[in-house]
Design a protein around this nucleic acid. Structure first.
Length: 567
RNA sequence: UGUCCCAUGGUGUAAUUGGCAACACGUCUGGUUUUGGUCCAGAAGAGUUUAGGUUCGAGCCCUAAUGGGACAACCA
């Protein structure tokens, strides 16, 4: 039994091109047949559904090949990083159901090793200290179509470079005064090979190494080496790093130069990142939503973050299933959020209890039901799962029904209530609508009905077919609840991909609607994150803002509604 | 006037590695149902961007074109 993904184990994980690459490596007996992957977030933000895809990929690769997956924080830039993020990332990965190998790793753990390898490069004439400003260095880079020019400091002596680099480390220089660069090829058609920076000076405390360092390695000089140190065999990353691959290999070539052949030498493989329509996925834009107060925080239920989805009511299983269904390829496309929604519906359908909750209450008075009578009726908790049993619900003369379950002028295909029509209050009696009352504004205030005592659910002797069934909640016993109805955050399919517009131009003003609902009394003791199907309405879960005095539910996703389409 | 990557129904991914293009989501029928949900049965929808080539045979291999994307942070 693999420790990852313990329960659900879709052994038939869809095959993808990475499997084929790994199969090939294995058939050539590379790395002694080992497979070790890693998930390497920078702790500078919260994880989102795109990271979840990568997490599922890396861990499922480890599972498939009997290997492992490390969690490594790529913490090479103290100005952007924070422990708040390392904590949330660990929480999210665990919540998704995965267990990384050993302790979490940190690139900062390798700073000493990285430094000594840098010294090796200098000694081998493969790195030099450059005194030029960022602007000058940038201008010398050339463009993708024109070669760059060499820095005047490129041919400093090894001794001078060694001395300068040590003094950089000792803190003798201000930020920006000096950098360490790899000496490769300023005319390379690949911009990343034009003497890339290895180290820059940053006088800022690091969340783990404190003030020990004032020089920090760049991504390109740190990532592959981190992989090398950990023995990562397959370094899976997204497409934009494709052009970094030659550099990834070059640096490892330099550090193994003159050493004995390493047992494990990993390789970078790139896949297309996840894109979802009607949402943005970049940390920068997500941060913008948070900072501008467009959402309530990183875990706002409208956010595509793992914490947002969790709060919204998504389950780890549904997200893993989603990650499996979107597949892995090198073509970048846009996934329809409908797929994500179908995954959570599929999961919740079979596991959560049905309850009666009226989201837009309209009072109905059953005029022939005795004023002070109440009785209990029984309802099945989940028709998909008999073992979930049933529960008792109070019934009385006045009940709330859904406002849109009544129509004054109903079309022929309307299966719900209109004057003169009979239907069933689910689990209780058949009722017939006898009339309604409007206020001065023409808004229906309450409706009237009579019930047929012979039609009580379970005990009925009546055999006539009653087409419509609606949910309800006894007015006297109803519990008030705030319900937060969520819609897509953006009203444009690709909010981040518009030339002349900012993603904020496409914010859906109606992405959150707060309503006052009437829910059945059994819900009074619901705990945060408890999940339900509000019968005929959708899937809901208790929000973290909920208290015993004030119940708050989030709508995770609506039920499919083929009636809404017909209208 | 560069280098690299990509191209299969509406969307996403497959195709036993050169052998009748499949699955999921979505859409549409019909049935079941005390949820217009679920479930069940079925349907429509691509001949694989284009042009050449290799081959008995090409979605798959080769060449080119076209279209899309990545690359010029002291970010990752």
């Amino acid at each position: 039994m693999n420790k990852n993904n313990p329960e659900a184990a879709p052994e038939a994980v869809k095959s993808n091109f990475i499997h084929q690459e790994i199969d090939k490596d294995l058939s050539e007996n590379k790395n002694g047949g080992a497979v070790l992957t890693r998930f390497p977030p920078e702790p500078n933000g919260y994880l989102h559904i795109g990271h979840a895809k990568s997490i599922c990929l890396n861990f499922s690769l480890a599972q498939k090949y009997g290997g492992g997956c490390n969690l490594r924080f790529d913490d090479t830039n103290p100005v952007k990083e924070d422990v708040e993020y390392v904590d949330s990332i660990q929480e999210d990965v665990k919540w998704l159901g995965f267990t990384w190998e050993g302790e979490p790793k940190y690139t900062s753990d390798y700073f000493d090793q990285l430094y000594s390898w840098a010294v090796k490069l200098i000694k081998n004439g493969k790195a030099y200290v450059d005194d030029q400003s960022a602007e000058v260095i940038a201008s010398q880079k050339g463009t993708p179509t024109t070669p760059g020019t060499e820095s005047p400091y490129r041919n400093r002596s090894v001794e001078e470079n060694l001395d300068l680099f040590e003094r950089m480390k000792a803190g003798e220089f201000a930020a920006g005064e000096k950098v360490l660069r790899a000496k490769i090829d300023m005319a390379s058609p690949n911009m990343h090979m034009r003497d890339p920076l290895m180290y820059r000076i940053i006088h800022q405390a690091h969340h783990r190494t404190g003030d020990k360092w004032c020089i920090y390695p760049m991504y390109d000089y740190a990532h592959g080496q981190g992989d090398f140190i950990e023995g990562i065999t397959h370094s899976i990353c997204t497409l934009e790093f494709e052009v970094h691959r030659p550099l990834y290999n070059w640096f490892i070539d330099q550090i193994v130069e003159g050493e004995r052949t390493p047992e494990v030498r990993g390789r970078q493989i790139e896949f297309a990142r996840l894109n979802l329509n009607y949402t943005v996925m970049s940390k920068r834009k997500l941060l913008e939503l948070v900072q501008k107060g467009i959402v309530s925080g990183w875990d706002d239920p409208r956010m595509p973050t793992v914490s947002g989805l969790r709060r919204r009511g998504y389950t780890p299983e549904s997200i893993r299933n989603f990650a499996d269904k979107v597949g892995v390829a090198k073509r970048d496309g846009i996934i329809d959020v409908a797929l994500l929604e179908s995954c959570i519906r599929e999961d919740l359908n079979k596991r959560v209890a049905r309850v009666n909750a009226v989201v837009d209450p309209l009072k109905m008075i059953i005029t022939n039901y005795p004023e002070d009578k109440e009785e209990w009726v029984e309802l099945i908790n989940n028709p998909e799962d008999e073992s979930m049993g049933s529960r008792q619900l109070p019934f009385s003369r006045e009940v709330y029904i859904e406002r849109d379950d009544f129509m004054e002028d109903a079309p022929k295909k309307f299966f719900r209530l209109t004057v003169g029509k009979e239907l069933r209050l689910k689990g209780a009696y058949a009722i017939t609508c006898t009339g309604f009352k409007k206020n001065e504004d023409g808004v229906i205030e309450e409706i009237y009905a009579t019930y047929d005592p012979e039609t009580k659910s379970g005990a009925t002797t009546v055999t006539r077919k009653i087409k419509g069934v609606i949910h309800w909640v006894s007015a006297k016993h109803a519990v008030d609840a705030e319900v937060r109805m969520y819609d897509r955050l953006y009203n444009h399919e690709a909010p981040a991909a518009q030339k002349d517009a900012d993603h904020l131009d496409f914010i859906n003003p109606d992405s959150l609607t707060v309503i006052a609902a009437k829910v059945e009394p059994s819900l009074k003791d619901a705990k945060v994150l408890d999940k339900f199907q509000f019968q005929r309405v959708g899937y809901f879960c208790v929000d973290k803002d909920s208290t015993s005095d004030k119940l708050i539910f989030n709508r995770t996703v609506a039920l499919k509604d083929s009636w809404a389409k017909k209208k």
